[in-house]
């Protein structure tokens, strides 16, 4: 099968890749581009472990085809820290140990970042509902939610 040639932007850098029609964006990121930070927890849009943004919109990359990235801008966990400097959400997750095994963490961070970009003053309920697309079996969510609320407060006072 002929591969498709796709031009896109990933974490701010222009990227071109070849992919097969049926490959998901998650497959492309992980298998073709070596960006293994996005995880596959279900491949059915139920767990959020594969969360990325496309043109700023939060999506499950397991439900997006690689070819659909043509001409769009994709942000993944690999682009979240600024070099050695962690993003405030990453830093807060670290300080509060809002992760355990870490497999769901990239998805939560991407989803939380996307929330705070839209709403820097969410209620606890809003945070819980926004992050309800992400499953975590380790943490019971408590520290994740608190970290996101704390970062939102820090952002507002900054």
């Amino acid at each position: 099968m002929a591969k498709h040639h796709i031009s896109t932007t990933i974490n701010g850098e222009p990227v071109e890749f070849l992919c097969e029609t049926q490959q998901t964006l998650l497959d492309v990121l992980r298998d073709e581009l070596g960006l293994t930070g996005s995880k596959e927890g279900c491949a059915s849009g139920d767990c959020g472990a594969c969360s990325v943004t496309v043109d700023g919109r939060l999506v499950c990359s397991c439900l997006v085809l690689g070819v659909e990235a043509e001409g769009h801008s994709v942000e993944t966990i690999e682009g979240m820290a600024d070099g050695e400097n962690l993003h405030p959400l990453q830093q807060k997750f670290l300080e509060e140990a809002a992760l355990q095994c870490g497999i769901c963490t990239p998805g939560f961070l991407i989803a939380a970042k996307s929330l705070l970009e839209k709403n820097n003053n969410p209620t606890e309920t809003e945070v819980r509902y926004w992050l309800a697309g992400n499953l975590c079996r380790c943490t019971g969510y408590d520290k994740i939610i608190r970290s996101v609320l704390d970062v939102a407060a820090d952002m507002r006072s900054a």
Partner: peptide, 18 residues
């Protein structure tokens, strides 16, 4: 703070599929 977390938080964890 947990030492393992920086690698998990930046997507650099080394899980089997990675």
């Amino acid at each position: 703070r947990r030492r393992e977390d920086t690698r998990f938080l930046t997507g650099s964890g080394r899980y089997i599929d990675d």
